[in-house]
């Protein structure tokens, strides 16, 4: 019952996307630049050692997560808007638990973010990224993106609870997303980073999500993929729990 109600928020999101899908395509512009321009150029220079795979292949999962994490983390802006309208007040007076609401909205953000997986694969594969998209690998990738984006959406909800205005929310969003991206293994192996940055990247959830994605789509390493997915899932549920604990404060 609680799951059915949580999934209602996913349905809400998909219905909105169906009425206005432009966002899905607008969001594709940045990844096209990263993969199409940055990826192809750096691939040619061979400046970054990426082991057995070429650079373009290496950064595709990183760029994918950059794009999805941005969508997930921007989800809170919608809650800030719903807070200014009466929607959140009303939703919080429904006979639905705070955890169900938080979980549902986190899943909704993840569903929105997941659209990028398919768009980016459609961009990267023709450009020559060597990715294994056979059903089991693709399914694993979907699971990883979905679980990771759910946690990042929960983080976004948490930010919305405390920021409350669009301006502040956008400020903190900028301040968080770029460091998370650059201090992760998204566009270079973390071994290349100075020690303090390496230490940070090891507590950065993006690092685990991207590693799990590379395991699924590039290396085919199931064991490592599941281990990283487990870390991702733990992070996501912890954030969902934290966000649901304070959710009520958003309308105070």
């Amino acid at each position: 019952m609680a799951w059915a109600r949580a999934l209602t928020f996913v349905e809400l999101e998909l219905r909105r996307l169906r009425h206005d899908p432009t966002e899905v395509f607008m969001r594709a512009v940045q990844p096209i630049l990263w993969i199409g321009v940055f990826g192809t150029v750096m691939s040619r220079v061979r400046a970054i050692p990426t082991g057995s795979v070429d650079y373009l292949t290496f950064i595709t999962p990183g760029v994918l997560m950059q794009s999805t994490s941005f969508i997930a983390m921007a989800y809170g802006i919608m809650l800030v808007w719903e807070r200014e309208s009466g929607i959140l007040k009303r939703v919080l007076t429904l006979p639905v638990s705070k955890f169900t609401i938080t979980l549902g909205r986190s899943l909704a953000g993840a569903a929105r973010a997941l659209t990028q997986l398919f768009i980016i694969l459609l961009i990267a594969l023709p450009l020559g990224a060597k990715l294994d998209v056979s059903p089991p690998h693709l399914l694993l990738a979907v699971l990883v993106v979905f679980t990771g984006s759910m946690g990042l959406t929960a983080l976004s909800i948490l930010m919305a609870v405390f920021m409350k205005t669009r301006e502040r929310f956008m400020g903190i969003l900028q301040a968080i997303t770029m460091p998370l991206f650059f201090a992760s293994n998204a566009i270079y192996p973390i071994e290349l980073m100075p020690a303090p940055l390496q230490a940070f990247s090891r507590v950065n959830p993006l690092t685990y999500i991207i590693q799990a994605l590379r395991d699924a789509l590039i290396y085919g390493d199931y064991a490592d993929c599941l281990a990283n997915l487990a870390v991702t899932a733990a992070f996501s549920f912890a954030l969902a729990a934290a966000a649901s604990a304070v959710l009520e404060k958003i309308i105070e």
């Binding site: 059915a4 109600r5 209602t8 349905e11 809400l12 219905r15 909105r16 009425h19 206005d20 200014e84 309208s85 009466g86 929607i87 007040k89 009303r90 939703v91 429904l94 639905v96």
Partner: peptide
């Protein structure tokens, strides 16, 4: 029913009630 708008304006009227009914 709060003072401010409390329906999603990017959904249809039917869809709004559908979401609320499910919740």
């Amino acid at each position: 029913v709060p003072q401010e708008f409390s329906v999603w304006n990017d959904l249809t009227g039917y869809e709004n009630l559908l979401i609320y009914a499910k919740l």
